[in-house]
Amino acid sequence: MNLEINVEESNGIVFLHIKGEVDLYSSPDVRKKIFEIVKHKAPVILVNLEQVKYMDSSGVATLIEGLQQSNKYNGRFALYGLQNNVKEVFELTRLDKIFAIYPDRDSAIGKKDA
């Protein structure tokens, strides 16, 4: 399955829905989409990883770039719905302490406690 990336805007929040495997081949597409969003200084960017089955360090690097770009204008950049093996990559690299990571969409929005 090729990578699918969809952008949804709702109540001032930009959701980036990613589906598939994020690796050296597909991460440039994710990077391009994230940079389009941060270029417009979206105040809140929530990355939906519920359907990401695999992520390598190039995918993680892409998300670090998104976080850093968003921090430059005091935006909020958070992740939600990480599958176990993707979560493990963030834990191994201790990036789970750097990123705001939520179990699901509602907790990422703040509708319920994480």
Binding site: V60, A61, Q68, V89, L92, T93, I98
Partner: peptide, 17 residues
């Protein structure tokens, strides 16, 4: 790891896992 920048994590992951 405290050096937060994109890239350079591959070798760390290989040697860790």
């Amino acid at each position: 790891l405290e050096d937060l920048r994109p890239g350079g994590l591959g070798v760390y992951l290989m040697t860790t896992v």
